[in-house]
């Protein structure tokens, strides 16, 4: 359908890198999101304050600005640390690390909101019952909270994942050779930018469509035993 002048395989490589960036950053965001949600629901006012500032600040600033700040600012910071420790060699912040950290950090804030809602939807009495049986805090979380909150968190998680997937395109700006950058090389060499960027769009559409199907499957899987309302 499209004549890519032999650039097909490198774009496929780029697509793989895009997927890697997305998967690593979603893992980071899940960890940060869990921590953020627990902090916002905790009794300590300090933890609540930090978590609230984190989610508000991150959601008020564009992802591109945060990414540029971390990429350029992070390198300066690492240089400063290097000087402080009197290291011989410079520690380099790779675009992959900067990109993955920024995206994970940003979506951690969104995940925290999603997870907080899901945690509050699990009936308190069940957690108390768990404690009454002598389970530790961790056991209550893993055995009672986690399996039930997944069902409530899945729709919001799915939305966040779809937005995150599209945000990965920004890593091309800080020099990571993802699907977008690989397509740019092809576009520049062949003078057919429309064809190449359209192929990138189709690549993203494939990712989105597969994600939607998987999410629908997961939602059905985790609502087994519950009556589904509506329509």
């Amino acid at each position: 359908m499209f004549d890519l002048h032999g650039y097909g395989p490198t774009i496929a490589d780029g697509a793989w890198l895009t997927l890697e960036v997305a998967l690593v950053s979603v893992l980071i965001s899940i960890v940060l999101g869990m921590a953020g949600a627990l902090a916002r629901l905790s009794k300590s006012p300090v933890a609540r304050g930090i978590a609230t500032t984190y989610t508000t600040l991150i959601r008020g600033v564009p992802d591109l600005v945060l990414m540029l700040l971390l990429f350029f600012g992070g390198q300066l910071f690492l240089n400063w640390i290097g000087d402080l420790l009197e290291l011989e060699e410079q520690i380099d912040l790779s675009p992959f690390t900067a990109g993955v950290l920024t995206i994970g950090f940003i979506f951690g804030a969104y995940m925290a909101e999603t997870f907080r809602g899901a945690m509050m939807a699990v009936p308190r009495g069940q957690l108390e019952a768990g404690h009454a049986y002598g389970m530790s805090g961790l056991q209550v979380f893993v055995r009672i909270m986690l399996p039930q909150m997944i069902r409530y968190a899945l729709p919001g998680f799915g939305n966040n994942w779809l937005v995150l997937l599209k945000t990965t395109a920004l890593v091309s700006v800080i020099g990571l050779n993802d699907m977008v950058n690989k397509a740019r090389f092809g576009a520049n060499a062949t003078k057919e930018p429309f064809t190449f960027y359209l192929v990138v769009c189709l690549g993203y559409l494939v990712f989105t469509t597969v994600s939607l199907l998987l999410l629908r499957w997961a939602e059905r899987r985790y609502s087994l035993g519950y009556e589904r309302g509506g329509r």
């Binding site: 599209k166 945000t167 990965t168 395109a169 920004l170 091309s172 700006v173 977008v180 740019r184 576009a187 003078k191 057919e192 930018p193 429309f194 064809t195 960027y197 359209l198 990138v200 769009c201 993203y204 559409l205 989105t208 469509t209």
Partner: peptide
Amino acid sequence: YFFRGTPLLVQTFLLYYGSGQF
């Protein structure tokens, strides 16, 4: 489906750079 399933960055590239092809 197209515009919600693809990144805004790539859409902007598609129009800005892509227009040169025609």
